[in-house]
């Protein structure tokens, strides 16, 4: 849960300053700082946007531009695990639509949705650069390929 007024710890603030120091213009650190905020607060709420804007001296509207432009910032609470199914060309030809349908039925949610117990967020995404293992998906920061409905079931069962 995002607290009503987001606040980084002193260590996290030091990390923000480190990231800002890496770029000729500190504004360059906006993306990594937003990722940090997402890790810390769970998702990028409007309050988080305002907080991050304050760290950079930017208008909240301009942070909102960045957050809405990119797909990997979550603007709503997400599940404990993110399952991203590739639906691009190679995976599509190798059976991704069937995998996605199976997950829809198994989890009872549409891509973009989160299960009621907050366990899994399901996404349909573009190419993840792993065509050799098509059809594939990404669970959190791990790739899983050569999927069948059975292997997908086993994967989902392992998620807490």
């Amino acid at each position: 849960m995002t607290p009503s007024r987001p606040q980084f710890t002193p260590e996290q603030q030091a990390e923000v300053r480190r990231l800002q120091g890496l770029y000729p213009d500190p504004q360059g650190a906006l993306l990594p700082v937003l990722h940090l905020a997402q890790d810390v607060f769970g998702y990028i709420s409007e309050e988080v946007e305002e907080y991050v804007a304050g760290l950079f001296g930017l208008a909240p509207a301009h942070v909102h531009e960045v957050v809405t432009f990119y797909t990997m910032y979550f603007r709503e609470p997400k599940g404990r695990h993110i399952v991203s199914v590739c639906h691009n060309l190679s995976c599509h030809l190798a059976g991704a639509p069937g995998i996605l349908d199976h997950l829809r039925r198994r989890l009872g949610i549409e891509p973009g949705g989160t299960t009621d117990d907050g366990r899994v967020t399901l996404l349909a995404v573009e190419c993840l650069c792993a065509c050799e293992m098509a059809p594939m998906l990404q669970v959190d920061d791990r790739y899983e390929g050569n999927l069948t409905p059975e292997t997908v079931d086993r994967l989902i069962d392992q998620l807490q």
Partner: peptide
């Protein structure tokens, strides 16, 4: 005042 932005893509 920076009220406006271009959102999404």
């Amino acid at each position: 005042t920076s009220e406006l932005g271009i959102f999404h893509r």
